[in-house]
């Protein structure tokens, strides 16, 4: 499900399921302890500012790197100094006495899944959103990574992509619908292996 594998029929340029693009926006799944947080982030502008949507809430974020280990972060009207140390497991982040090992959930999953058969994943929005476009209909054959539904949250669009190749069995949504994480918007019958 992650990366593009040489020889896979999905072709080059298909991004991992945990990072999707819509007009420059990236989705991150970030893990702290048992919790996984989903963040949609538009690219940083020249001043290091952007909007990020964390669990459905939009935050204005400005970042500056003071040193390689020291980030100054402004979130809304709150200023914070973060100290960061990278390891192969993720990044240790220090904030006001709290040290947290922060990991990219996609990387964690990739490590766990390495060498195993690809697992399925569901077509569901990462955050409460409204449906902007539906790109497929029932019976359509799709390839892994193909766009299925475009949703919008806080002025940012995200394209939900096919987690695996197959045939669309059901489309459970329509343009303008308000959708939440966990709702399966498109169901796909997987192509038989081989």
């Amino acid at each position: 499900m992650n990366g593009f594998l040489p020889g896979s029929d999905s072709g080059p340029g298909i991004w991992a399921a945990d990072v999707r693009f819509a007009e420059g926006t990236m989705e991150y799944k970030v893990k702290i302890g048992p919790e996984i947080y989903t963040v949609d982030a538009a690219p940083l502008d020249d001043s290091g500012s952007t909007n990020m949507v964390l669990e459905g809430e939009t935050r204005a974020v400005t970042v500056s790197a003071v040193t390689p280990n020291h980030l100054h972060l402004r979130v809304g009207c709150r200023a914070a100094n973060l100290f960061v140390a990278r390891t192969s497991e993720g990044s240790w982040i220090w904030l006001e006495g709290r040290a947290r090992l922060v990991q990219e959930a996609g990387i964690v999953e990739r490590r766990k899944a390495r060498g195993l058969a690809e697992t399925t994943c569901e077509v569901t929005p990462p955050t409460p959103a409204s449906v902007v476009r539906v790109l497929v209909e029932v019976g359509r054959e799709v390839v892994k990574g193909q766009g299925l539904v475009v949703v919008s949250a806080m002025k940012m669009e995200m394209t939900l992509v096919a987690p695996y190749s197959g045939t669309v069995r059901a489309v459970n949504t329509q343009v303008g619908a308000q959708v939440s994480p966990g709702e399966i918007l498109v169901e796909i019958d997987a192509l038989p292996e081989g």
Binding site: L71, V75, A80, L82, V84, R86, I93
Partner: peptide, 29 residues
């Protein structure tokens, strides 16, 4: 147990750093 009060800021900082890319000397990862 550790609380989760500031985890949101840590998450946003992590993402900001990932996005900022080369400016942060992202050598290893």
């Amino acid at each position: 147990q550790p609380d989760r009060v500031l985890d949101d800021i840590a998450v946003l900082g992590f993402v900001a750093r990932e996005m900022a890319g080369p400016g942060f000397a992202l050598e290893e990862n």
